[in-house]
Computed example of a mutant assay.
Amino acid sequence: MSGNVSLEEVKSGLRTALAWRGDRTDRHRWADVTGWWRRPDLLANLGPALAALFADREPTVVLGPESRGCLLGPLVALHLGVGFVEIRKDRAPSADSDAWLRRTTPPDYRDRHLSLGFPKHLVGGGDRVLFVDDWIETGGQAHGAHLLTQDAEATWLGAATVVDALRSNRVRRDLDVRSLLHVREL
Rank of each mutant, 00 (worst) to 15 (best):
M1Q: 08
M1V: 10
V5K: 12
V5D: 02
S6V: 03
L7V: 06
E9N: 11
A17V: 02
L18N: 02
A19P: 00
R24S: 12
T25P: 00
H28V: 02
R29C: 10
V33Y: 08
T34K: 06
R39H: 10
P40M: 11
D41G: 00
L42E: 06
L42A: 04
A44T: 06
L46P: 07
P48S: 04
L50W: 09
A51F: 03
A51M: 01
L53T: 04
F54V: 00
F54P: 00
A55D: 07
P59F: 04
P59S: 02
T60F: 13
V61S: 12
V62L: 05
V62M: 05
L63P: 03
L63R: 05
G64T: 08
G64Y: 07
S67F: 10
G69H: 12
L72Y: 05
V76F: 11
V76G: 04
A77P: 10
A77Y: 11
L78C: 05
H79S: 06
G81A: 14
V82I: 15
G83C: 14
G83M: 15
F84S: 08
E86S: 14
I87C: 11
K89I: 11
D90Q: 14
D90Y: 15
D90G: 11
P93S: 10
D96Y: 13
D98S: 13
D98G: 08
W100G: 02
R103K: 07
P106N: 03
P107M: 13
P107T: 15
P107D: 09
D108F: 02
D111M: 14
H113L: 14
H113W: 09
L114D: 04
L116D: 03
F118C: 10
P119F: 10
H121F: 14
H121R: 15
H121M: 10
H121N: 11
L122I: 09
L122P: 08
V123W: 07
V123E: 05
G124Y: 11
D127N: 11
R128C: 13
R128T: 12
V129D: 02
F131Q: 01
V132M: 04
D133W: 13
I136R: 12
T138H: 00
G139W: 01
Q141K: 09
Q141L: 12
A142L: 05
A142T: 01
H146E: 06
T149K: 03
Q150W: 01
D151W: 02
A152F: 01
T155Q: 14
T155V: 14
W156Q: 01
A159W: 08
A159F: 09
A159Q: 11
A160V: 07
T161S: 08
V162G: 04
V163N: 06
D164A: 10
S168N: 02
V171I: 15
L175F: 02
D176R: 08
S179N: 10
H182N: 09
R184Q: 14
E185W: 09
